[in-house]
Amino acid sequence: MVLNIQHFCTHDGPGMRTTVFLKGCTLRCKWCSNPESIHPRPELAYNPAKCIGRTECGFCLPKCPEHAIFSTDPDLKVRINWTLCTNCSQCVSACPPGALSLFGHELTVEEVLAEVEQDSPFYRESGGGITLSGGECQLQPDFAAALLEEARHRGMNTAIETAFNVPWENVEKVLPHVDVCLHDHKISDPERHRKWCGADNRRIQENQKRAYETFPGVKFIARTPLIPGVNDDEAHIRAVLAFIRPHPNVIDYELLPYFRFGESKYGFLGRVYELEDFQPPSEELLARLRAIIDEAFGRATAITRKTQP
């Protein structure tokens, strides 16, 4: 279940890369920037800006078996009752301008690579390649492994972005085909991790440690999405450093400042964004936290902006 393929990303691994987003995730971080990647099945997305309206079109209205599409005066664009919608997708083909569409498609390894290879001249030059992201790409271990193996075979550098909240068997299948593993250290305290992300971090940390030890050839890059008032404190940064520094194959630790990337997409999916009052972290705070990381690594660490599907 592939969600999206994004070309020319420069932040999800070395060089110029193509990022493939896989659908489905085992966490529910309240700040999630890719809400359309959370659920494992295709989902309806509605973009009202494209809707022609009930009077001139309205083709979708009789199509919905759940009575989930409706229209109220006075703006004649239709609306979706998300409580009633079951993502059956029957309305999608009825919509001429594509206001109704599906997030998520079934693609084969070959189809994905054909798309990715359009970019190959660029990453041959820059040492880039393919990055699997999500969602949680290790939730589809067989597909991810096959895709990465074939990509590597064709001379691409392979990277994944993962939260590691998956069974160890999945990790064992995927990581042998990975050059660079970008992984999250969201919150150190298990109970707080559970509150903000839906599950605690015990299995995540077990997997991380085991992965560092089992796959010495993989370059691991630790990351923290900095959320104000949640994990933007020194104690967390130091705890992560203490966790990763004993492992020489963890080559970097990046901070991803929270920029409310995903917020607008919540509307398309009828979800509620709970962090509306949060502000991005200040430059001063970032500089201070980065200095701590620089010190631990003995060199400068860059701030990156995460790319979006």
Binding site: F103, H105, K265, P309
Partner: peptide, 14 residues
């Protein structure tokens, strides 16, 4: 086709 929310016009009513 894969991620309409990401590529829609900036002026969408959200």
């Amino acid at each position: 086709s894969l991620s309409p929310g990401a590529t829609g016009p900036a002026g969408a009513r959200i």
